[in-house]
Design a protein around this nucleic acid. Sequence first.
DNA 1: ATTACTGTATTAGTTAAGTAATACAGTTCG
DNA 2: CGAACTGTATTACTTAACTAATACAGTAAT
Lengths: 150, 150
Amino acid sequence: MLFRPNPSSGVPIYLQLMEQVKHAIATGALRPGEQLPGIRPVAEELVINPNTVAKAYRELEHDGVIELRQGAGAFISDNAPSMKDAEKLRTAQAAVTATVEKLRDRGVADEDIRRLFEAELSGAQTAKALKANQSGGPSFAKATEGKRGE
Amino acid sequence: MLFRPNPSSGVPIYLQLMEQVKHAIATGALRPGEQLPGIRPVAEELVINPNTVAKAYRELEHDGVIELRQGAGAFISDNAPSMKDAEKLRTAQAAVTATVEKLRDRGVADEDIRRLFEAELSGAQTAKALKANQSGGPSFAKATEGKRGE
DNA sequence: ATTACTGTATTAGTTAAGTAATACAGTTCG
DNA sequence: CGAACTGTATTACTTAACTAATACAGTAAT
């Protein structure tokens, strides 16, 4: 059984299915060219609506993870080996989310956060200069504790 | 006029009000102990419901930014979490730099980093840690042929 | 061409967030 | 006190996300 979504986790089912497919690919349980189970069989087994599975598949196709062919089925994209990059992006997203939330909690306006990021990204050479200003070390770890509950 | 929310920005009005109060504090336009305009005057001026302003004030109080006293008014908290804005922005900058550097070390491309935090800033604030996966495909966007309207 | 599979599309019901309408309660100052 | 302010609470409307019910359309093997 490929899919094991948790209906009461608060996370949308179709997102859980997406994650599980990506994870299966990342761990080699699913390989490029391989066919995914059909929408209806999956839906029946999980006792959910076929549309929910269809949405997961559709989004996965949009992400370039799988390929959908009407009447034929759903197949792992040939470029699937690069899934490790997607994993990287997921953890990267977590880091970005954490940082942005911290700054927001400290009262930094979104436009300021945006400006800071842009400044950091546009000038790749600026990294050194900024590093020099961090007298006292990076306060990233410190900002983590300053989070306010939500 | 302290508040200038944009009703058609997609960002909830009460969040915009919160941001603007925080920004006003950060720039010194509002100082600790100072009284904020009443809920009703603000609501009338912006032609919105008093409850929307009330929600902004309530959340600001929850964030420790202001202090609410029923019958009296709303006042900037003495220890508002952003008095030394210069230092605040410096630590914010340090946090941003740390995050960006960490991601770069992991091999995340700058354009991907930009996309990640743009998604984080544009969205509201609810759980979108998973949602961010949708726009982040690395290089395997081959199956975008059968793409449907979005 | 028929049949049994596959994904696709249209419509509807459920829930939560945001906002609003309205009534309630505490403070201040004459 | 009481009038005019202040924030507070209850309830309801609107919208978007998620899921479901159901009908449509392409593919492939017979």
